[in-house]
């Protein structure tokens, strides 16, 4: 178990290492734009991969998959953080020496005046409490509140896809691929949810009248 987690951890780091390597040694024409796009792609991919765990479990019946979900979710958070840090921190602050007050102005204009960044940054803000409450201790402390809180990941995924749609100049094919995957993942969940309620109702009906639960 622990060994597998280590392997998964290293695999999840590959896109980060690859992007960093390409950034430094890849002779990229537009290295910072490349790194921003690559980490953004991986952020969205990891959100979708995390969301795919439950549908995959439902389809395959492999219950142990859930054990890897936390790490996948935390990697989604990691790539989202790296994604906007490449622009605001690495590009503007570190490489191009934009001073603090000017940087603050850049960041606030971006967040409040550019809708696709507003949407993308909201996704990050919503991910933050999920990352912070991902520990066993926080799970215990929150008890029944934990699950509804972590359901916001659906909303986060939608925001991520909207963010992508909004920033594309013209060709919508790639964001459409992400959208279709998201819809497919929702569809699997809905299907199983619906089947469960149907089965429950059927089981209820087959009981003698006195034992039936009220509909």
């Amino acid at each position: 178990m622990a060994k597998r987690k280590v392997v998964l951890f290293l695999v999840c780091l590959i896109p980060f290492i690859h992007t960093g390597w390409q950034l430094l040694y890849g002779d990229k024409a537009d290295p910072l734009a490349y790194a921003t796009h690559a980490t953004g792609d991986w952020a969205l991919r990891f959100i979708l991969i995390t969301l795919a765990v439950t549908p995959l479990r439902l389809i395959t019946g492999m219950t142990q998959l859930v054990r890897y979900r936390r790490m996948l979710g935390l990697f989604a958070f990691f790539y989202v953080t790296v994604h906007f840090s490449v622009y605001w921190v690495l590009d503007l602050a570190i490489i191009n020496g934009v001073g603090f007050s000017e940087l603050l102005q850049y960041v606030t204009t971006d967040i409040f005046k550019r809708p696709y960044i507003t949407v993308g940054f909201s996704a990050f803000l919503l991910l933050l409490p999920l990352a912070l409450t991902s520990t066993n201790r926080m799970m215990k402390r929150l008890g029944k509140k934990w699950k509804p809180l972590h359901r916001t990941v659906y909303l986060i995924a939608v925001l991520g896809v909207v963010h992508y749609f909004w920033l594309v100049k013209k060709d919508l094919r790639e964001p459409l691929i992400y959208l279709s995957i998201l819809i497919a993942l929702f569809a699997v969940r809905l299907f199983y949810h619906y089947r469960k309620t149907l089965r429950r109702a059927a089981a209820n009906k087959s009981l003698p009248e006195a034992q039936r639960k009220p509909a």
Binding site: A29, D30, D91, N96, Y106, T109, R114, P115, Y116, W166
Partner: peptide, 16 residues
């Protein structure tokens, strides 16, 4: 409408 035009990234470099 979606991004600033105040600076530009210089192709082939990390600079603006």
């Amino acid at each position: 409408p979606r991004w600033s035009q105040k600076t530009e990234r210089v192709i082939g470099s990390f600079g603006r």
